[in-house]
Design a protein around this nucleic acid. Structure first.
Lengths: 119, 119
DNA sequence: ATAGTTACATACTTTGGGGTAAGTACTTGT
DNA sequence: ACAAGTACTTACCCCAAAGTATGTAACTAT
């Protein structure tokens, strides 16, 4: 999953910003084209991998699992796999992921309002 | 300021996400390593270019004006130049930029709480 | 036997954000 | 004459995120 070059200025600055600026810290967790959209779809209850895929048609499978993995690592999303075949894997929000909802809502409200005003 | 290739899938998806997902819309405006930090420093009142530069020592001048320009284009920040020499340019938050403050606060609060919990 | 389903994995390429370094115009202080 | 300050600009490079394409295991239904 894309190895990072630890000793680049870019990466260094990112670390610094993330630890010193809580807003950047949040954006590192929910940034990326698809993460907010994934979180949105999971906010209406847990979904299977294939359900998410169908719900977000433009996303490629690579991007979908990549972001799902990152969201798991950040403890925002929980993966539950039933050991049957064909596989049955569901994704749901963790408590931390659920606590993020008001923040996402606040952002969405500002965004919608701003889009409205600039029309 | 880094020309964009309009007809790339990447850029297309970004546009789509930004117009269909209000959260992504917001992140396009406040994303980037330095934008939240710049907005934070402006939230305590307007600042000169050189004051911002000194307040954020790690940022390069290129990044600083680049982000300031984008923030102006997004109508979050207002540039006021007095026609004297040496130049006297101040940056301040627009009403839209000020309205963003509660959102940034909500993000910061979640971020700080999350950082705390994972220690 | 073979086609389909599910949930991935992996190699390769592209590109846009970010960093480095240097230069500019205009004036004031020494 | 020249150094210093202010607010930029410009050319160039690097790399990590995103996209493209293809493959895989294990089982079921026809």
């Amino acid at each position: 999953m894309t190895a990072i070059k630890e000793n680049s200025t870019r990466n260094y600055n990112k670390q610094v910003s993330a630890t010193s600026c809580p807003v950047t810290y949040v954006m590192n967790k929910i940034g990326g084209h698809w993460k907010p959209i994934i979180l949105y779809h999971l906010s209406n209850g847990s979904k299977r991998y294939s359900e998410l895929k169908r719900a977000i048609p433009q996303i490629t499978e690579k991007m979908l699992i990549q972001h799902l993995k990152q969201l798991q690592e950040d403890d925002l999303v929980l993966r539950t796999a039933e050991p049957i075949v064909p596989p049955f894997v569901t994704y749901s929000l963790t408590p931390a992921g659920a606590k993020l909802q008001p923040v996402l809502n606040a952002m969405a409200i500002w965004g919608l309002n701003d889009m409205e005003e600039r029309r």
